[in-house]
């Protein structure tokens, strides 16, 4: 059985860049909701390695385990690396948040990552093949900002889960997260569309804004043997945003 790296949220943004970049080094499974967009990404991926597509909506988590188990069996694959890039972000003050927003955000950002990790760390379903997990968190995880209430708490939960899994799955599986700052993606396009906000943010990034490839480079490192003694860590890749306390 061939070994693959699973990338969730691979049809756009950071996930797309991560998937394309990883396809140079690993057979990849591209996960997303939209089959057409996934196939577009598949066409950009390297021809040196195999590439499969898994269509699943991570907002609906009730049958997620079952669907992933079926996918593994049907395709006769083992997943050695798992990168959770799928993410939902709705910037709203808490007074405008709804129960549905909260549940959809947590399902996509946290619950699905838990359930996928459960299946992939199971000997029965993945033959003990899992070696490394990277969750894409956010630099808001350890901080606070207006309108980030639900999104920030989901990323904080994801990082707390990451640390526990690093301990629970050692020594066979390394588990880490990456905390990106603002990078240009479809999800953050609305933020950058506001000139005033863009200018304000620009002034607070010592290295300027990042691009999805900057995050993909971090994922490549954490999945590789060069990170063999690193587990349970948050790797902040944000151009220095969260260490800058210049008044």
């Amino acid at each position: 059985m061939e070994k693959y790296v699973l990338v969730t949220g691979a049809s756009s943004g950071i996930g797309k860049s991560v998937a394309i970049s990883l396809s140079e080094n690993y057979p990849v499974i591209l996960h997303g909701r939209n089959l057409d967009r996934l196939n577009e990404v598949k066409n950009i991926c390297s021809l040196h390695n195999k590439c499969l597509v898994w269509q699943e909506d991570l907002v609906q988590v009730e049958k997620l385990e079952e669907h992933l188990q079926h996918f593994l069996l049907e395709n006769e694959v083992i997943i050695e690396g798992y990168v959770h890039c799928a993410g939902l972000m709705k910037m709203l003050p808490l007074r405008s948040q709804s129960l549905i927003n909260i549940q959809e955000t947590f399902n996509t950002n946290v619950v699905s990552a838990m359930l996928i990790t459960k299946v992939l760390s199971s000997k029965k379903w993945n033959k003990g093949g899992l070696r490394s997990i990277v969750y894409i968190s956010s630099n808001i995880s350890n901080r606070g900002a207006k309108a980030f209430n639900v999104y920030a708490s989901s990323k904080g939960a994801l990082d707390a889960f990451m640390r526990s899994m690093a301990v629970e799955l050692a020594p066979n599986v390394r588990v880490n997260s990456i905390l990106p700052g603002a990078v240009f993606t479809d999800m953050t396009m609305d933020i950058f569309a506001n000139k005033e906000v863009e200018e304000r943010m620009k002034a607070t990034y010592p290295l300027g804004f990042g691009h999805p490839q900057d995050i993909a480079d971090g994922v490549n490192f954490l999945l590789s043997e060069k990170a063999r003694w690193i587990t349970g860590q948050q790797l902040v890749i944000d151009g220095g945003r969260t260490v800058d306390i210049t008044g």
Binding site: M91, P93, R95, S96, A147
Partner: peptide, 11 residues
């Protein structure tokens, strides 16, 4: 304020 504007965009 800016938060209300975000809420109006979403609404």
């Amino acid at each position: 304020d800016s938060l209300t504007i975000l809420s109006i965009i979403a609404m």
